[in-house]
Amino acid sequence: MTSETLDPAMVQAFNKNLIEEFRANGGKVGGQFANADLLLLTTTGAKSGQPRISPLAYFRIDGKLLIVGSFGGSDVNPAWVHNLRANPRAHIEVGTDAYDVVAHELSPQERDEFYPKLTALVPVFGEYQAKTSRVIPVFELQRA
């Protein structure tokens, strides 16, 4: 999805279908994410306290499991970023494995170290950062 199509209802429907496909196929999906490493991140809603599931690409760099709050280069963070900042305890599903994690938002120095490595793997993250004035956050997920 591009930032031009980030209508909340569309994102919700897209994610719902992706989550169902992920769970039905042991963590594998087709379409534009066929070769991507995806996980399902379950956060606790910062306001609602309810579980919120987000399908996300993840990256393993220097032994760290990283997720990126790019939201297609939108000028706002995805909701899961707000949720993790309010409550860093979360749950992930990776393939057929599922476990609890604690999220650590990379400091500006850590982010500056890892963002070029991310853009080397997935150049579109450089384009997303160029489209927005916000600093796109990066989180490390550590097994709880």
Rank of each mutant, 00 (worst) to 15 (best):
A79K: 04
I92M: 01
G126I: 05
L65N: 10
M10S: 12
E127Y: 12
S70F: 00
T96M: 14
E21Y: 02
T44C: 00
D7N: 14
V76Y: 10
L121R: 15
A36T: 10
A13P: 04
F139M: 06
S74L: 03
E113Q: 13
G95V: 02
P8A: 01
E4G: 05
I53Q: 15
I67K: 02
L84I: 03
G63M: 10
A36G: 10
N17K: 15
L121A: 13
R143W: 10
R134I: 01
T119H: 08
V94F: 09
W80L: 01
N17Q: 15
F33T: 12
F33H: 13
K16N: 14
T44K: 03
F139N: 04
L41E: 05
R85I: 02
A34W: 11
W80G: 04
T119N: 04
V135T: 11
A24M: 06
E113P: 07
R89C: 03
R143F: 09
N35K: 13
P8H: 04
W80F: 07
H91A: 02
T42L: 00
S70Q: 00
P51C: 00
T119W: 05
E21F: 05
I67T: 03
A120E: 14
V138S: 12
L84F: 04
V11I: 15
F125L: 09
D97K: 14
N17R: 15
Y99P: 07
G27R: 05
G126T: 03
V102I: 09
G31Q: 08
R85G: 05
R60D: 15
V29M: 09
I19N: 03
H104T: 14
V29C: 08
T5Y: 12
R143H: 14
P88K: 04
N25R: 02
F139A: 03
T132W: 02
A130C: 08
A144P: 10
T5A: 14
G73Y: 01
G30N: 14
S107E: 09
V101R: 02
N17V: 09
A130W: 08
S133T: 13
V81T: 00
A144E: 15
F139E: 05
Y99D: 04
Y128L: 09
G30Q: 13
E113A: 14
E20N: 15
V29F: 06
G31T: 06
D75K: 08
V81S: 00
T42Y: 01
A130E: 11
D112Y: 07
L18K: 12
G126H: 06
E105F: 07
V29E: 06
G49Y: 07
D37V: 05
L65I: 12
G69F: 08
A86R: 07
Y115M: 09
I61F: 08
Q12E: 15
A57L: 13
N17E: 15
H104L: 09
F114W: 08
R111Q: 11
P51S: 01
G126R: 03
A144V: 14
I136Q: 04
T43R: 10
N83I: 02
L66D: 06
P8Y: 03
Y58I: 06
E20I: 13
V138C: 14
D112L: 09
T119D: 05
E113S: 10
A57Y: 05
P116A: 11
A13S: 11
T5E: 13
M10Y: 12
K131L: 03
N15H: 10
K28V: 04
L56A: 00
M1S: 11
V94T: 11
F71H: 13
V29K: 09
F125W: 11
T119A: 05
V76Q: 13
F59Y: 12
K64Q: 12
T132K: 00
